[in-house]
Amino acid sequence: MKIAVCIKRVPDMDVRFKIAPSGTAVDESGLKFDISDFDGYAVEAALQIREKLNAGEVVVISLGPDVVQETLRKAMSMGADRAVQLKAETIPADSYAIATALAAELQGGGYDLILFGRMSIDTAHGATGAMTAELLGLPVVNAISKLEFDGGTAKMRRELEGAYELVECALPAVVTIDEGIARPRYPSLKGIMAAKKKPLEIRPAQLAEPRLVLDAMALPPERSAGRIIGEGSAVVPELVRLLKEEAKVL
């Protein structure tokens, strides 16, 4: 099975972000970057499929400036076979523009399965996978938490609010991955060494004109500092009083 996984380089979320002076970007100083959470699950899912079938190829693709090569190398150190950078100076806010570039790369690639994370953890629109599928004329199943194969048919589970769907779709198809499918592996030292020699092709991204424009970024209002009202079950009456009289939620 030939599998493509589209991944994005994102900052580690475990920080207090600052907005850059431009007002439309995050101040990147001191930030650590890695594969976006759901994209990491997608890479792991692809590797597990290849391992189970004991055949096939996993190609990772990322759009962005040269720093995304580091992200692609990380995926190859996990076990992906080769990588493609779709070079662009910046990553536009417009998922449709990104999807046009990805579709141009994927078209004619002979992929049986194209995986995405269900959304990037930074810009969080969750649209690129489905849009790429539409542009390729392929079926897409979004946000799946389980994936199995029965011959050439993928059988999947999709989480809804308070429910889930069981979904089937014949390959080739695009599938976007939710959490629950596979926790990404850590690269081994051997994997890291091997990744340095794996092929990484660089091509210019064929981006459509962005029509979703980022005007501004702002930090949400800070919560006021927390308050401990006491210890043990003896404080429960006071809590109930506060919920009733101060917070007015009871």
């Binding site: 995050v26 424009v213 501004a216």
Partner: peptide, 19 residues
């Protein structure tokens, strides 16, 4: 124009759809 929470809710993005 929409307000869209990104970065796990840590940043509010103002985005305009011109299409």
């Amino acid at each position: 124009t929409v307000t869209h929470p990104g970065y796990t809710g840590k940043i509010l993005q103002t985005l305009t759809l011109t299409a």
